[in-house]
Computed example of a mutant assay.
Amino acid sequence: MLKRLSRGLRTVFAVAMLTVATYAAAVELRGDHPDTYVVRRGDTLWDISARFLKKPWLWPEIWQANPQIKNPHLIYPGDVISLAYLDRLAVQPGPRSEAAPINAIPLDQVEAFLKDMRVVDEFEQLPYVVSLEGERLRGTQNHVVYVRGLTGAQPGQRYLVVRPGQRYTQTRRMSNGQYLPFKEDLDYRGKRLLTQTNDFNSGWTNMVLSEGPLEKLGYELARINAGTVTRGEVGNIEVTTLLLDEVGREVRVGDRVIPVDALAYDLQFFPHPPKTQLPVGKAQVLAVADANNYGGPRDVVAISAGARDGIDNGTVFSIWSNGNKVIDRVEYGDDRSDLSVPKGSRVQLPDEFTGHVMVFRTFDKMSYGLVMEGIKPTRVGYSLKHPDATY
Rank of each mutant, 00 (worst) to 15 (best):
K3L: 09
K3M: 10
R7W: 10
G8L: 12
V15W: 14
M17S: 09
M17A: 07
M17R: 15
L29D: 10
G31C: 09
P34R: 07
V38C: 02
D43K: 10
A50I: 09
P67E: 12
Q68V: 06
Y76W: 03
I81L: 00
S82N: 13
S82F: 15
S82G: 13
L86K: 07
L89N: 01
Q92D: 06
S97Q: 14
D121Q: 13
E122M: 03
V130M: 08
L137P: 12
L137K: 13
G149M: 12
V162L: 06
S175W: 00
P181F: 01
F182D: 02
D187Q: 02
Y188L: 15
R192C: 10
L193F: 11
L194Y: 11
L194F: 14
Q196C: 08
Q196Y: 04
E211K: 05
P213L: 02
A222T: 09
N225I: 06
T228S: 15
V229D: 11
E238K: 10
V257A: 03
F269H: 13
P274F: 01
L286H: 07
A289N: 12
P297I: 15
S304C: 02
G310H: 03
I311N: 00
R329F: 00
R329S: 00
G333M: 09
D334E: 14
D335G: 09
R336A: 05
L339H: 03
V341F: 08
V359G: 11
R361A: 14
M366K: 00
L384S: 01
L384P: 00
D388T: 11
